[in-house]
């Protein structure tokens, strides 16, 4: 089940989401977006929808479903 929807094209690579995901569901991905930023990925199985990523993200990458 998809728990969090991502718009990684908006990502600027601050990685505050990784730092604040307490269960480690967010990691670096191998994808580089159109800004030239190495973006992040979410392990949908691990995600508990706490919303920390949404809250910390300056760039509205995350939507908690």
């Amino acid at each position: 089940m998809e728990k969090v929807k991502l718009n990684v094209e908006r990502c600027k690579g601050c990685y505050l989401c990784i730092e604040n995901c307490k269960i480690g569901a967010i990691t670096m991905s191998s994808y580089t977006n159109r800004n030239g930023v190495v973006t992040i990925q979410v392990d949908q199985n691990k995600c508990v929808q706490c919303g920390n990523c949404y809250t910390m993200c300056p760039d509205l990458v995350f939507e908690i479903l």
């Binding site: 600027k12 690579g13 601050c14 508990v48 706490c50 919303g51 300056p58 760039d59 939507e63 908690i64």
Partner: peptide, 23 residues
């Protein structure tokens, strides 16, 4: 721990912002 309501960008945020990373 899971939130009951969806969390997504409020409607007032119409597009991407122009700030630096982590601003």
């Amino acid at each position: 721990m899971a939130r009951k309501t969806a969390k997504k960008a409020p409607v007032i945020m119409k597009c991407e912002n122009m700030f630096c990373a982590g601003c």
